[in-house]
Amino acid sequence: MPAVTHKDPGTVDTGLATAAEKVSLLAGQRAAEADATRRLSPEVVAGIREAGFARHFVAAELGGTEGSFDELTRAVVAIGQECPATAWCASLSAYSARFASHLPAEGHRAIWGASPDVVIATALMPAGRATAVDGGWRLSGRWSYTSGIDFADWALVCGSVAGQDGPPQLRFFALPKGSYGVQETWDSIGMRATSSHTLTVDEVLVPAHLSYDRTDMLTGVNATSAVAAHNVPFQAVGGLTFIAPVVGAAVGALNATAAALTGRKRGQAAELAVVRASGRVDAARFLVAQNAGVLDGRLFTPEHMARNERNATYAAEAAVEAVGLLIKAAGTGGLGEGHALQRFWRDVTSAASHVALQYDTAARKNYSAVLLGPEV
């Protein structure tokens, strides 16, 4: 059999960024409705799928596009300017395929054999327990904050394996729709339409080919795929999955404020606040783009990976500060229910609270590497 060749993700344009423009327009038109109903419309969900987010990191031999981190990041930021919840779900649908790539080859065929556009919802935190049985694992548990679970075709969850000596082994388990339940528990004031509900599993048998050791994902060593994006240490990716929608939301908030500050509303104090906010937004955009460049350039040194984690957490901090300044600039009018700015403010505040965007779980543990980091 001839060797499988893979694209260089740094040089291939899959068309995702262009397709995202159409999704952005539709998502912007439905953003207020999505916020009010706490769910994305079927048309927006279909738009995410048709644009190619789910297939972005899927192997070419399975119909995927093997795209780059840079192209994905630009597409997510663009959608985030119109509807951060849509951008969040688009980002996770892409990155979830990357996580699932660590499954055995038979698992790849089970998930993507019929279509590369399968949407996977991922619960990264270990919250369930599994027991080894003949042919696989018996799994039970509850996973909170599983974004996009109400329109996902598959779920990928992390659980601990019972009955072993020493620390419990952590594994990921892939579950087809219908083998798990969903409890609608997501009631955050921001990112309301991400459907980040609780996934429940009760004594489900997971075949061996639908599970892999969590260490494989953390180290980025993929025994079943040679695709570049499938062989990336988790630390290097850092919070890019989650910060790109936040940065898009901050850009959206800046645009909404600038459009609203006309006439007497545009005083010197308001202009100053917008300028200060724009600096923070630009800094966040630069740092996120820098992270994507590190991933596509495969610069997986301790210094680069530590900087990526720091960049994501700092970008989240800068975005929160920016929308706070914009709220002050817009005044009471910016907090009206019909004003887009208050939605962006709530979305940024909610999304920036994600554990992946906290200093305690990211850059702080890499103190020395950050200080002695790579040249900019």
Rank of each mutant, 00 (worst) to 15 (best):
G135L: 10
L287K: 12
V201D: 06
V12T: 13
A330C: 10
F242L: 12
D213Q: 10
A340Y: 01
D117C: 10
A244W: 03
S179A: 13
T86F: 02
K7L: 15
L92D: 01
Q29H: 06
D213M: 04
C83W: 01
R285A: 14
L26M: 15
S195A: 15
A256I: 09
L199S: 05
V23N: 04
H339I: 08
E271R: 15
A20H: 00
V320Y: 04
N311P: 03
E321D: 14
Y314R: 14
T224C: 07
G297L: 07
A208W: 04
D13W: 01
F53C: 07
A36G: 08
T185R: 07
V275M: 09
P374E: 11
P84W: 05
S196Q: 08
Q235K: 13
D282T: 12
H6P: 02
T301H: 06
T73V: 12
G136S: 08
V182M: 07
W112V: 10
A318V: 00
Q29P: 00
A256Y: 07
E66Q: 12
E375W: 09
D70C: 08
T146V: 15
R276F: 02
Q235W: 03
A100I: 11
A54G: 08
T194L: 01
G334S: 04
D296H: 02
A319D: 08
G64L: 11
D8V: 11
S350G: 00
A110C: 04
P126G: 07
V133P: 05
L124C: 06
A85C: 10
V370A: 05
L62C: 02
H209V: 10
R343F: 02
Q268D: 08
I327Q: 11
V294I: 14
S140M: 08
H209Y: 15
I120W: 06
A105S: 12
T361N: 15
R138Q: 15
L218H: 09
A59M: 10
S211Q: 10
A54K: 06
Y367P: 00
G163F: 09
L40Q: 03
A51K: 08
Q164I: 10
G239M: 02
C83K: 00
W143A: 04
N231P: 06
T37H: 11
H108V: 10
K177W: 07
G67R: 03
G52D: 06
E321C: 05
R307E: 09
G239T: 05
A250F: 03
T18M: 05
V320D: 12
S41N: 00
L72K: 06
N291R: 07
I243Q: 05
L170Y: 11
D13L: 13
S353A: 14
T215A: 13
G338C: 04
A289E: 13
P84R: 08
A316C: 08
V355Y: 12
A127I: 01
V206T: 08
S144E: 12
L139D: 02
V44H: 03
G135E: 07
E71F: 10
A19H: 02
E61I: 13
V221K: 14
W112R: 09
L335Y: 04
S68Y: 01
R142K: 14
L299C: 08
V4T: 15
E317K: 13
A174H: 08
A369H: 07
H339T: 11
A51L: 07
V370M: 06
H56E: 05
